[in-house]
Design a protein around this nucleic acid. Structure first.
Length: 613
DNA sequence: TGCCAAATGGTGGGC
DNA sequence: CCATTTGGCA
């Protein structure tokens, strides 16, 4: 395969990159920290840099790029973009993991090399302890001076081996490890524990360390502002002092996970310990100029040294693009909100799914307050954080199982849908690992799909669009693929309970949608959230974007901790605001609480006014 | 059981 | 920060 000289390389699949992105892309001699604000295209930048390194041979075979993200969808999204931009042979050398899958992979591969007494048996179990579990442990083993949050945090901080002496906290951690290995009839490990095991393994085993460093001379880190102490320490043990070149990407103005264990100063530590150069991207491809100007006022308050971003999106709406809406009471608030969205939809300005309602906390409470007013106007509000069975709707929609089955079912209702047909064919090719150049097998695949489409059409005509049809219809799609094939193809479905969780969620949500729908087509639209206003917390909205964003409750009761000295809260406010592509509104209800005056004062000079509804 | 004080949860994610 | 739960004690 011929390589492209670095000087001749062009971005793949996009017109061009901003000058700062070019600079960050070509910097391959030194670790860099790419500060990419809201809408700067972080993932695309990483995909382009990977493509550059692979296509030019700057990352030559058999060396690989290791990309580490936090969430599964971020990791798979990045991998997918690189696959689209590179020839398969090169794309295969791009390894995209989540932090935890990277750690678990190493534990599983080199388990036997983990020093005693920490070497886990092959059949260890993964557990996800909640606060209460830690509290129960502390109670059972009589550690009275330690609380659940302390021990949770300490487990992710302490290096192994941990001595059963010293402070009560340290003894509690030592006892916790012992108990997880010995007291429950099976060895139960949490993700932070897996992380600590890997850290121990590579610290103590020079061969594995060397192999890791030889394999991955290039390391990408996504959403770096949310790195935890344990993750940072693992990176240091794995790559500190090696030749590895890091490209870390993130935005410390969007750091909203410190309360859950993210490092408060990951950027500064990274610059210091890895000698990283900082490069800031300044384009904002998401929001138009007026919104970007307001965003910058908030950004400037978070970090006075921040550069003014350049808006690259076009304004498409008339009227206010940002305002604080004030209501006398909550009933009026719900009613006006529903009314406003209804009118916008009627006027043809937006579809319901272009709007998101964001809340600080307690999405289900807000759902209860808003739903009646929405229903009264035949608008549907969907709380995407709500669970169907054991999975949140938002997570369910991103699952591979959902995507694959939904496409097949779409083929059963649409008259002609080349888009779904091609997508379904691609799914099958992948699931059955068929070589695209094997024309005979391709043809057989097309024939099989054709037969299936005829069958599923018959099935859906025979089954009425009622809740009880959910199971048989979904089952028909699943049986065509074969549950075993699906589970083999996606590692996350290999454990039966994980597969069942997603499958049950799929059927449950389909049931719900069929309860409201007139036709199969409507039900599938409902399933995907078409025609529905999404309701979610700020934390869940991160990395998403919406035409119009409405923040529910800018009062000091809902947002009790939004004070000038609580930076993380201001970051949350910033994250919420920057989700908007075209418009951002905030609701205020005097019945619920007083306005957050300092935020109003901050935004007023940028033209954000309080409007009495 | 009733009363008052103290503690706690709320915002999340990973195989 | 505030609503709710838990804990201690009579």
């Amino acid at each position: 395969m011929s390589l492209v000289p670095p000087g001749d390389w062009n971005p793949q699949g996009v017109a061009d990159l901003e000058p700062r992105a070019w600079e960050a892309l070509r910097q391959t001699a030194q670790s860099i920290l790419v500060t990419a604000g809201a809408g700067a295209g972080k993932t695309e930048f990483l995909a382009q840099k990977a493509t550059y390194l692979l296509q030019t041979g700057l990352c030559p075979a058999p060396k690989r790029i290791l990309a580490i993200s936090f969430k599964r969808d971020a990791a798979s999204n990045l991998a997918e973009r690189v696959t689209k931009r590179c020839p398969p042979k090169q794309a295969r050398r791009f390894t995209s993991y989540t932090f935890d899958s990277f750690a678990k992979g190493l534990v599983d591969r080199f388990r036997a090399a983990i020093p005693e007494p920490y070497c886990p048996p092959a059949g260890y179990h993964i557990v996800t302890p909640r606060r209460q579990d830690y509290a129960d442990f502390l109670d059972t083993y009589n550690f009275q001076g330690v609380n659940a949050q302390q021990i949770e945090r300490e487990i992710a901080r302490v290096r192994l081996p941990v001595a059963n002496s010293g402070s009560e906290l340290q003894r509690a951690v030592a006892e916790y490890w012992r108990a997880q290995y010995n007291d429950y009839g099976q060895v139960s490990l949490s993700f932070p524990m897996l992380n600590r095991l890997v850290e121990l393994l590579i610290r103590e085993n020079p061969y594995i360390l060397k192999a890791l460093r030889l394999t991955y001379p290039v390391v990408f880190l996504d959403e770096f502002q949310d790195t935890t102490f344990a993750q940072f320490q693992l990176l240091r043990t794995a790559f500190g002092g090696s030749e590895a070149i890091f490209t870390a990407v993130g935005d410390d103005k969007q750091r909203i996970m410190v309360w859950a264990g993210a490092m408060p100063d990951a950027f500064a530590q990274f610059e210091r310990q890895f000698g990283a150069q900082r490069i800031s991207l300044i384009s904002n491809w998401r929001s138009h100029e007026e919104l970007v100007r307001i965003q910058h006022v908030i950004a400037n308050r978070i970090d006075p040294t921040v550069e003014q971003p350049e808006a690259r999106a076009v304004r498409l709406v008339d009227g206010d693009v940002a305002a604080i809406w004030e209501f006398a009471n909550e009933d009026e608030e719900s009613d006006c909100l529903a009314q406003w969205i209804y009118r916008e939809v009627q006027a043809g300005n937006i579809e319901p799914h272009d709007v998101a309602i964001l809340v600080r906390m307690r999405a289900d409470e807000v759902e209860g307050k808003l739903s009646p007013a929405f229903n009264a106007r035949s608008l549907r509000l969907r709380n995407v954080a709500r669970n169907v069975g054991d999975i949140a709707i938002q997570d369910l929609l991103g699952e591979e199982l959902t995507q694959v089955l939904l496409r097949l079912m779409r083929l059963g209702v649409a008259e002609r849908s080349p888009e779904n047909w091609n997508a379904a064919l691609r799914d099958l090719q992948f699931l059955e690992a068929i070589d695209p150049s094997d024309e005979a097998r391709q043809r057989r695949l097309q024939e099989r799909l054709q037969v299936f489409v005829r069958e599923i059409r018959r099935t859906l005509r025979r089954l009425e669009p009622i809740p009880d049809s959910a199971t048989p219809s979904a089952r028909a799609a699943l049986d065509f693929i074969g549950a075993q094939v699906l589970r083999r193809a996606f590692p996350s479905y290999q454990r039966q309970p994980d597969f069942d969780r997603v499958w049950n969620g799929f059927v449950l949500l389909l049931r719900e949608c069929l309860a409201h729908a007139e036709t199969w087509s409507d039900a599938l639209d409902d399933f995907e959230g078409l025609g529905q206003v999404a309701l979610m917390t700020i934390h869940k909205s991160k990395s998403l974007e919406f035409h119009t964003m409405i923040f529910y409750g800018l009062d000091n009761q809902t947002w009790w901790s939004l004070t000038p000295d609580r930076t993380e809260e201001l970051n949350s406010f910033f994250v919420a605001f920057t989700r908007a592509k075209q418009r951002a509104f905030f609701t205020l209800c005097i019945e619920r609480g007083q306005p957050v005056i300092w935020i109003e004062n901050l935004l007023a000079p940028a033209g954000v006014r309080r409007v009495h509804f």
